[in-house]
């Protein structure tokens, strides 16, 4: 793997790591498997593309994207809590609906952003080389998100969020409306995913309605790899682990893409298969280990 490819993997690991932290909030903390993310990542990108091509400041575009993601998450959570639709199904419905909505927002399946301003401009104007500017921005932004999410989970509302995922009966008896907390939590998760979508679009210079395919699986892979490699004993450790897991995951993919065995080489289109296998192995490893011990 070249130095350039490694830098690219680090960059991708950080920006998709923000998405993975969102997945961690729903999947692990709220115990709410949420597939909305496959739609809210391109939603963030679509909103950003529309905003940037309309001449709106890229930082405001980023905020708008986050807000859009929050609303998408709220829709899923309201379907689940207030209207009693199964969480998985509720999130698939929102995801499917977002496909159409994203095309409406962009007035087409994709928008090129090569000519527009981006959040990286201030760094580039400061004299940072273009290929480093995005990496530097992602390091700072991911650090900000990590600190912000850890802080949030130690607040009164954050503790209620932890308890809602852990023991809804108990936290209801303490006077917390779990519906409100789930709506807030899933909203927040999708806000993070949409922020990642916005940054990815600005970095690759295009928003595409299909860029969200497999987001949930990449998110899960990062969460699981992070937990396995870095551990999840405490909340700060677990959140940092997700980011680390995301970087490791992208590095692994970069390595796999360079793999050649005789006439066989790995194509980018094999990525989903590789990821699925990775998640399956990580998920089933504890069970298989136990079974092997018994024999």
């Amino acid at each position: 793997m070249s130095w350039y490819a490694a830098l690219g993997a680090l960059e991708q690991g950080l920006v998709y790591g923000i998405m993975a932290i969102g997945v961690y909030l729903t999947f692990r903390i709220l115990d709410f498997p949420d597939l909305t993310v496959d739609g809210s990542l391109p939603l963030g990108a679509s909103i950003t593309a529309l905003a940037l091509t309309s001449g709106i400041n890229p930082f405001i575009a980023l905020l708008l994207a986050g807000f859009g993601g929050f609303l998408a998450g709220m829709v899923t959570a309201i379907l689940n809590t207030k209207l009693k639709v199964l969480h998985l199904l509720a999130s698939i419905l929102t995801m499917i609906a977002l496909y159409s909505i994203n095309i409406r927002i962009m007035d087409g399946p994709n928008i090129s952003l090569l000519a527009t301003d981006t959040v990286f401009d201030p760094l580039i104007n400061f004299g940072v080389p273009g290929y480093l500017a995005s990496t530097m921005f992602f390091v700072a932004f991911a650090a900000l998100i990590v600190v912000g999410v850890i802080w949030f989970l130690y607040t009164e509302i954050g503790l209620s969020l932890l308890a809602t995922g852990d023991n809804p009966q108990m936290i209801t008896a303490q006077g917390v409306n779990t519906h409100t907390i789930i709506i807030l939590g899933v909203g927040l998760s999708n806000a993070l995913v949409a922020l990642a979508g916005s940054l990815i679009a600005q970095n690759q210079g295009a928003a595409d309605v299909n860029m969200g395919v497999g987001t949930i699986i990449a998110g899960l892979a990062s969460v699981i790899v992070g937990e396995t490699v870095f551990g999840d004993k405490t909340i700060p450790r677990a959140i940092i682990a997700v980011l680390v897991g995301s970087v490791i995951y992208r590095m692994a993919i970069a390595l796999a893409l360079g793999l050649e065995m005789g006439r066989f080489s790995v194509n980018p289109s094999d990525l989903n298969l590789i990821t699925a296998l990775l998640v399956i192995i990580a998920l089933t490893a504890p069970t298989i280990k136990k079974k092997l011990k018994k024999v």
Partner: peptide, 20 residues
């Protein structure tokens, strides 16, 4: 202590202050 802090707020409004 987090469990106690959750109970200490029973029926009260919860905000963005530190849980414990």
């Amino acid at each position: 202590e987090q469990n106690l802090a959750l109970a200490y707020k029973r029926g009260k409004k919860r905000g963005m202050g530190f849980g414990v």
